[in-house]
Design a binder for these strands. Sequence first.
DNA 1: TTTCTTAAATTGGTTAACCAGATTGGTTTG
DNA 2: CAAACCAATCTGGTTAACCAATTTAAGAAA
Lengths: 233, 233
Amino acid sequence: MKIEILTKTENQKILNGIISKIRDLMNYKNLEPGDKLPSERMLSEKFDVSRSNLREAIQKLEFYGLLTSKPQSGTFVADIGQVAMNGMIEDILRLEEPDFKSLVETRISLELKTVRLAAQRRTKEDLLQMRMALDAYSEKVKNGEDAVQEDLLFHLAIAKASGNSTMNTFMLIITPQIITNFEKYHVCDKDLAYRGIGEHQDIYEAIKEQNPQLAKAKMKVHFKTLYQYCYNI
Amino acid sequence: MKIEILTKTENQKILNGIISKIRDLMNYKNLEPGDKLPSERMLSEKFDVSRSNLREAIQKLEFYGLLTSKPQSGTFVADIGQVAMNGMIEDILRLEEPDFKSLVETRISLELKTVRLAAQRRTKEDLLQMRMALDAYSEKVKNGEDAVQEDLLFHLAIAKASGNSTMNTFMLIITPQIITNFEKYHVCDKDLAYRGIGEHQDIYEAIKEQNPQLAKAKMKVHFKTLYQYCYNI
DNA sequence: TTTCTTAAATTGGTTAACCAGATTGGTTTG
DNA sequence: CAAACCAATCTGGTTAACCAATTTAAGAAA
């Protein structure tokens, strides 16, 4: 068989095609939670795709919790009924690449929550890590150096201190994309960076004092100065 | 070479081991943004792991936006400096499986935002889809059937109407895990389901009227009844 | 007829061989 | 001397062969 190299978007298209075929099959066969899918080999032949592509598709559905595969046994429908299964797969297929505005919106929403949780739950170790990130940030800014990374680490330290592993994960997912965009558009100028020092300090103090409402307010201030230029992009 | 089948947790451990080795290498070699990593074959030999395992590790770092690999060319460090790179990898390695409480907290926080955005941005198609999900839910409840799926689809319709693809994705990620837990602990009794009809209706109306604050308030009410039993688990 | 045993077939996971495109270094050519 | 060219090599991606655990069902034993 001839080997073909695909770009990532082409590959994505094929994957989505396979996923929709899997959905159709599950509907046609009326597969219910716990039922076993046909084997990978059979499906790849039936759909006329390579087994590795089919595997990728299954793994994507596994990521969203819709299928689970057991070694040497089979791939099974998760505990999700047909209605929800169809709805979710449709959503997954329609998912588009996130735009910068979506990322920023989501970050603000998440951080206004993590900062409150951090104020409630922070341990001494959490405080120490935040302190270190904060100091590293100040140092860089005062030396006139770029401090986007240190800024980021301070915010990630807050996410960690929130004690919510889901939000922590989400912050990790969106953070690098935000950094990339920030650097691309040169969002951070020096004046902004200087103001950032005091704002970080305020947030840190509020968390230290375990004052969730104050922490949230200070985070809001921080975002306001951060993103006042953003929406012109 | 002898083939070994691993459980998913064992595999996860190996993956994390490889990731930390990649981090060490990047530090030792002072790799900067844009620099090329050694080839997969070299790394797999150097780390004494299979190439496929190494590939998985790289793909995980790609998922978090820390590396990008170009076909027939190489794997490159993303536009993230060494400090942030180290911090993020450390966070990724420490990530634990989300507990139910984290999921619920995150869902509430996300949905209180998506519902406001949906009220601002919903199109007529969005309304239609929400209406359909809502009717399907009522129907099921009135027939005394389980309606967890239809409930879910209503909430996903709101996420879609929010016009924020990032939040939409996040909702898709956490939703199946929440359903599974709900069904496991039998959170939803019939009384709750009946009240859900009216609450959904209220949320829908607020979104239709494009009243973000009211929509948020109604969503809060909905969550209150939904999760009043949850925290006993 | 029922239950236990066992061997063959099936399955998802893993490894190794292979492919096509990109890179690179040297050579040729203007 | 510089630019264009070309082939050998290297790279990530893809496929096919292989592995071991599981499942299945046929056969033996009760």
